[in-house]
Nucleic acid binder design. Structure first.
Length: 313
DNA sequence: AAAAGCCACAACCGCCTCCAG
DNA sequence: GCTGGAGGCGGTTGTGGCTTT
């Protein structure tokens, strides 16, 4: 172990505070102020270390502490601030009058974090949880050359991403994050594999879908609508997915990068599968089998990586 | 009724930063 | 510039109470 715990010195008391100890601490601070925490216990007649006294005062005895359940507004504020500040509990507490960093941290870990996970949001990145995507179904579609099903899987993926993302954006708007505070969107430049990066020039004039920076929700609606009409092309779908992944990506998240990299492989391979599947000549048929073998052997190492979503849970 | 499991939260631990000497 | 003390911070643990079996 590293340094000796300060409270082990001189037989100082540890553990829960008694009402008598609380009263001694309150009386002393009300009379003299806390001054130097190191010397306070001795002056106040407490067999505690200064650190323990400071924590007890700051987290429990301070008169301006607001006790009781967190309100819905407080909870939303915490989520919004956490998305901007991360685990900077003291910074978050500074914006929530009467709440301590310890209280907010505990509340986050025991309530909010779980609620976000249940809602499909990764509590670390505030992005959609990638473990919710039906990747095994997606892979099956790729494996068995089912382009229609593949498209549906991509659209479901897109809808999930957009829904969660829009929820977060609405929350941010509602709570009016100060503009000078950095956000993921402002500070992170997504780094996707080249084939996943949206390129408007490649879309051409007859494309059904447009990447709309101002309104991703419209894009989501059009994705669903087009899915229902079943009148999209694979290329459009792929480009739309690229733009969606671009929007939803977090370049600082190595697990996400790994997923993007694997998706890149899946998409490029499945694109060739779709092409081959639509061909009718015997020559192409034989090369299709070769391609399939190559693809299946490549999946042997892709699938475990792709499906390892434990980082997000 | 009792044991086991789970949950919430107060408190602790060790690292980091700041600042005076 | 270096050092050491003090305070602050975030992660983790211990424990009491509640729920489930």
């Amino acid at each position: 172990m590293g340094r000796v715990p300060c409270c082990d010195k001189n037989g100082l008391k540890k553990g829960p505070w008694t009402p008598e100890e609380d009263q001694k601490l309150i009386d002393y601070i009300q009379k003299h102020g806390h001054g130097t925490w190191r010397t306070l216990p001795k002056n106040a007649g407490l067999a505690r270390c200064g650190k323990s006294c400071r924590l007890r005062w700051a987290n429990y005895l301070r008169p301006d502490i607001k006790r009781g359940r967190f309100s819905l507004e407080e909870e939303e504020t915490i989520i919004q601030l956490h998305s901007v500040l991360g685990n900077k509990w003291s910074a978050i507490a500074a914006r929530l009058p009467g709440r301590t960093d310890n209280e907010i941290k505990n509340y986050w870990n025991t309530h909010i974090r779980k609620r976000l996970l249940r809602s499909g949001i990764d509590p670390v990145t505030h992005r959609p949880r990638l473990d919710l995507l039906n990747l095994s179904s997606l892979l099956n579609a790729v494996l068995f050359n089912q382009p229609a099903q593949l498209n549906a899987e991509f659209l479901r993926l897109a809808a999930n991403l957009l829904q969660s993302q829009n929820q977060n954006q609405n929350l941010l708007k509602r709570n009016q994050v100060h503009e000078s505070q950095p956000t993921y969107r402002q500070t992170i430049t997504p780094q996707l594999p080249s084939s996943l990066i949206y390129n408007p020039i490649q879309m051409g004039n007859d494309s059904q879908w447009r990447y709309n920076e101002a309104s991703s929700s419209n894009l989501g609606e059009s994705l669903v609508a087009n899915n229902n009409k079943n009148n999209y092309s694979y290329e459009n779908m792929e480009q739309s997915m690229s733009s969606l992944l671009y929007e939803a990506s977090n370049a600082e998240n190595p697990s996400y990068q790994k997923l993007c990299s694997n998706l890149d492989s899946v998409i490029s391979t499945s694109a060739s599968s779709v092409t081959l599947n639509n061909s009718s000549t015997t020559n192409v048929q034989s090369s299709k089998e070769d391609e399939k073998d190559t693809y299946c052997s490549s999946l042997d190492f892709q699938i475990p990586d792709l499906l390892d979503m434990s980082d997000f849970i």
